[in-house]
Simulated scan of single mutants.
Amino acid sequence: MTAPRSVVITGANRGIGRAIAERFVAAGDSVATIYRSGDLPDGVFGAVADMRDTAAIDAAFTAIEEHQGAPTVLVANAGMNRDTLLMRMSDEDFTDVLDVNLTGTFRCVRRASKGMIRARAGRIVLISSVVGLYGSPGQVNYAASKAALVGMARSITRELGGRGITANVVAPGFIETAMTGELPEATQKTYLAAIPAGRFAQPTEVAAAVEFLASPEAGYISGAVIPVDGGLGMGH
């Protein structure tokens, strides 16, 4: 029986982040989240912070370290979108999304990597999106933020790979959540027609990919982009 790992997942209060947290709890790990609001899965320690606030994120990690030790697994999942067409997109629409999705991820990785470097072991998993490499009208800001995570993971790999730390990207496609359930039926059919698998994914299918990348068996995988999109992106 291996000792439980200290796992931090940002945004574990809903959707994909919640499914990932539940999977690590079921595996017997010590799981914590940095989040803004909402209820958490059973067994998850919560620290409230805004991804845009460096001091708050640092304080959240300190609280988590006091509770369960320095994290050896970080899953950067928290994100936001503010969709609108390019010509209508304001500077704030663009920079706010990047500040949460990209710079917020950087703030968490920078803070979590301190303990990983000391331990000479760590798993960093960044949650991107098929949109990051496939593109999507009305999502210039979101797609840019998610595409940038690939460059971040690959740079981390080159910088920290010799210290037993891996950094990978998981790129989900359309996931069956409350949000997709509220889409008009015609819109859902259009999306489904573009997906070779012919269905939306379950959040647990994304969580399974994350769990594998965080495992000892994935120690020689780093700088990779793992799509969980039913074939939608197909190598983009």
Results as ranks from 00 to 15, higher is better:
Thr72Gly: 11
Gly230Ile: 11
Val109Ile: 14
Leu85His: 10
Gly173His: 09
Tyr35Thr: 14
Leu126Tyr: 09
Thr204Gln: 15
Ile127Leu: 15
Phe106Cys: 01
Asp96His: 13
Val48Trp: 00
Ala207Glu: 07
Glu217Thr: 10
Arg18Asp: 08
Ala153Asn: 10
Ala26Met: 02
Leu149Trp: 08
Val210Phe: 07
Gly69Met: 06
Ala59Gly: 15
Tyr220Pro: 00
Gln68Asn: 08
Ala207Arg: 10
Arg107Lys: 15
Thr177Gly: 01
Phe174His: 10
Leu232Met: 09
Gln202Tyr: 04
Glu176Trp: 02
Thr72Asp: 15
Glu205Cys: 10
Gly162Cys: 00
Arg23Asp: 11
Pro227Ile: 09
Ala119Pro: 04
Pro227Asn: 14
Arg111Tyr: 03
Asp229Asn: 08
Asp83Thr: 09
Ile226Asn: 01
Gly132Phe: 09
Ile221His: 02
Gly132Glu: 13
Thr95Glu: 11
Phe45Asp: 05
Leu102Lys: 07
Val109Met: 11
Val75Lys: 14
Val210Gln: 04
Ala178Trp: 01
Gly38Cys: 04
Arg52Asn: 14
Asp53Gly: 06
Met51Val: 00
Ala224Ser: 15
Glu66His: 11
Ala143Leu: 06
Arg52His: 06
Ala27Leu: 14
Asp53Met: 06
Ser145Glu: 10
Asp229Ser: 05
Glu211Pro: 01
Ala208Leu: 05
Ala47Met: 08
His236Gln: 13
Ala194Gly: 09
Ala63Asp: 13
Met51Asn: 06
Gly17Asp: 04
Val31Pro: 00
Val131Pro: 00
Val125Arg: 08
Ser222Cys: 07
Asp42Asn: 11
Met51Asp: 01
Leu102Arg: 04
Gly69Ile: 04
Glu66Arg: 15
Ala143Lys: 09
Val206Leu: 10
